[in-house]
């Protein structure tokens, strides 16, 4: 049994469906990329798996995590999984953290919500986590407010929160897009190290093919809400079968050679 089995997943609201008939699987510890142009439904797919779709949208179909159905599950059972079994890193580090709460507490909260009873232990563990995402002076960072950190530092904090409970699956939604080019590589390296150390599976969403090539083993190509091609990274990027993938590759050519 795969860790995640998605079958016929669709997302839509009152109008036309935004994601349709998406099916894929992720094995334990596997790193899968989800690529496509903006508006192709990548983020919605991730939100549907997390059960965090905007109110006006609904998910259909099936997504089995560790054998348990996620789509249509109760808020209660979903919230028990979120942050523990499956976690997420978002695109915008600048707004992803609560501006009115110290960073350390925000990291510790993730652990306190899922079984860690002792506040002191959670505090110590959160400093340790901040250290593991290679933030300098983690004790000081833990006492800081988000606005006192740079974008790259904040994204490391978000990663620390996501990895706090050693999730079985980490979903990253364009985690480096909003960062400076110089910081991007470091954060990617941290994500990769984080999932490898813990044996965590990764669903990595991006429009950047070069990133997919360096991070993922397998890739799914999404176009207008449908998966048009799937396969090992090397095969898809060197010998694309679908017209859309070829165009995507052609469009990113200058970026890849940069």
């Amino acid at each position: 049994m795969s860790l995640l089995e998605v079958a016929g997943l669709g997302v839509g609201g009152a109008g036309t469906p935004l994601v349709e008939d998406v099916s894929f699987e992720i094995e334990r510890g596997e790193r899968v990329g989800l690529i496509g142009a903006s508006g192709s439904g990548k983020s919605l797919t991730a939100s549907a798996l997390m059960g965090l779709l905007p109110e006006e949208l609904d998910a259909r179909g099936s997504a089995r995590f560790d054998g348990a159905e996620l789509i249509g599950a109760s808020e209660r059972s979903l919230s028990r999984r979120r942050g523990k079994d499956l976690a997420m890193v978002f695109q915008e580090p600048m707004s992803a953290l609560n501006p009115a709460m110290r960073v350390g507490r925000q990291v510790a909260e993730a652990m306190l919500l899922h079984g860690t009873r002792d506040r002191r232990a959670a505090r110590t563990a959160s400093v340790e986590l901040l250290d593991r995402v290679r933030l300098p002076e983690p004790e000081r960072i833990a006492r800081a407010y988000p606005h006192q950190l740079s974008g790259g530092q904040r994204q490391r904090v978000v990663l620390a929160i996501a990895l706090a409970n050693e999730p079985a699956l980490l979903i990253c939604d364009e985690p480096t897009t909003a960062l400076d080019v110089t910081v991007q590589a470091q954060v990617l390296e941290l994500i990769l190290a984080g999932v490898r150390d813990r044996g965590t599976a990764l669903l990595f969403i991006t429009h950047d093919l070069a990133v997919v090539a360096s991070v993922c083993e397998r890739v799914l190509v999404l176009n207008e809400g449908r998966i048009v091609e799937a396969g090992p990274v090397r095969r898809v990027l060197t010998a694309p079968e679908h017209e859309y993938t070829r165009r995507l590759l052609a469009a990113s050519e200058p970026e890849a050679t940069r």
């Binding site: 965090l52 992803a96 953290l97």
Partner: peptide
């Protein structure tokens, strides 16, 4: 966004 982060941590 930070409310979504809070939900993603497992807060209801």
């Amino acid at each position: 966004d930070y409310l979504r982060t809070a939900r993603a941590k497992g807060l209801r």
